[in-house]
Amino acid sequence: MIETRALVLDNLPLTEDIFKLHLLVPEIAAGVRGGQFVHLEVPGFSLRRPFTVADADEQSITLVIRRLGAGTAALAGIERGSSLAILGPLGRGFTPEKGRPLLLGGGIGAAALTLLARQLGECTFVMGGPNARELWLETLALPPGVGVGWATEDGSRGFAGNLVQYAAANLVPGLWVAACGPEPMLSGLQALLRERGLAGQFALEARMACGLGACNGCVVPTRQGNARVCRDGPVFAAQEVVFP
């Protein structure tokens, strides 16, 4: 874990509101694990923004970012050659368990799973979204062993339905599930996994201040009591998480 500066190598739009930041930051790129995140400066804002490392090679990392509010809108306009303060890698990533890995990424949640997919080498990775236009996973070059599938709510590509419906139809014995996405998706998946006796891990989001585990700003309830998403997570065992 280190505090340093990242040089913006590239900033590319992937869909209407999703873009990809390519950052030169060797100190963080070396040794980052799937599911870990960075805390990134946005010039002019009081708090940093947490983003999962979506991809990494020896020198650089890639973030896939959805424009949500003012901070991510500012990042969408950041120019190649700029430099941003960055802290990372942070948090606990995924720790693959026994079973054939099935990765389920709802919308921008898929960004939390792409580095895991690369590190697993062999897995099935299903991305869900409202329609085919919102699916950006193909724009990252994943290893050939990663079987990519799709689920769209309007049926414009792949499975017709959301990822919980997809899981209901496809969760069979012998799978291990890694997932990230909106809360209703994760709580639906949690119930399915419990029913079918499958293990899984979820990457969660929470508003953060320190990103290090010092301020207790990012806690979520778990069966063990409060847990800090930044330090105890962001990846938690599926059945540990308590949804409201």
């Binding site: 804002f45 009081s46 708090l47 901070g71 929470a206 508003r207 953060m208 201040a209 207790n216 700003g217 990012c218 806690v219 979520v220 409060n226």
Partner: peptide, 9 residues
């Protein structure tokens, strides 16, 4: 402590 969210910019 308090229920979340606990932070706002």
């Amino acid at each position: 402590g308090n229920p979340g969210p606990r932070l706002a910019e």
